[in-house]
Amino acid sequence: MGGSRWRIRTLSIYEQHAYVSSLWPSFVCRASGGLLICIGIVQPLRVTNRYRVRIEYRSTLTPKAWVEDPPLSRRDPDEPIPHTYPPDRPCLFHPRYGEWRPDMRIATTVIPWLLEWLVYYEAWQATGEWRGGGEHPLISTSGSAARDKGDNA
C-alpha cells in the first residue's frame, strides 16, 4: 500500500477480469467497451443465504456492487437499509479514505467487502442493529461525518 501516489499503476478491466475469474470461479465476467461486468453466486457464510450479485467497473470510476437475487428487503418500508446508496446499492467503502484505488484488485477488495456487507445486512435483518461499523454522510452542523459507535472503526 505504501507506493507513491503518482506511481500507482491502474489495472485494466481485463486484468481485473482475470483476477476475479481466478479467485472466484463462481463469477462470470464480461469486459467490453471499457466496462467490466461480473455476476456471481456468493454465500458469505454457511449460515447465510446465497445471493446473486453484480459488480460493474469502468476504470475511470469506482466499482459498484448490486445484490440481484434474492432482492434486498427493508425491515420497514420507511427505514432504508443501512449503508446503501438509494435505492439499495451497498456502500462498501469510504470514497475519500483511499480505501479503493484503481491499482487494487476487485477480486480481493470489493467482492469480500460485499460478502461482509451481506453478513451485516442479514444480522441487521435479524436484530435491527447494524453491527459492521461504518460512517454516514450525515448533514451535521459541524460538517463532519457521523461515525457509528461500536464494533468497527
Binding site: L23, V42, Q43, P44, L45, R46, P80, P82, H83, T84, Y85, P86, P90, C91, L92, F93, H94, P95, Y97, E99, W100, M104, T108, T109, P112, W113, L115, E116, W117, V119, Y120, W130, G132, G133, G134, E135, H136, P137
Partner: peptide, 20 residues
C-alpha cells in the same frame, strides 16, 4: 467459498461502510 475465520485465508483490506 466465502468468508472464514480459519487460518490461511486471504486477508480482507480495511474498509469503511459508507452511505446513509
Amino acid at each position: 467459498s466465502g468468508l472464514t475465520t480459519r487460518g490461511g485465508a486471504n486477508p480482507i483490506p480495511k474498509h469503511t461502510f459508507y452511505g446513509r
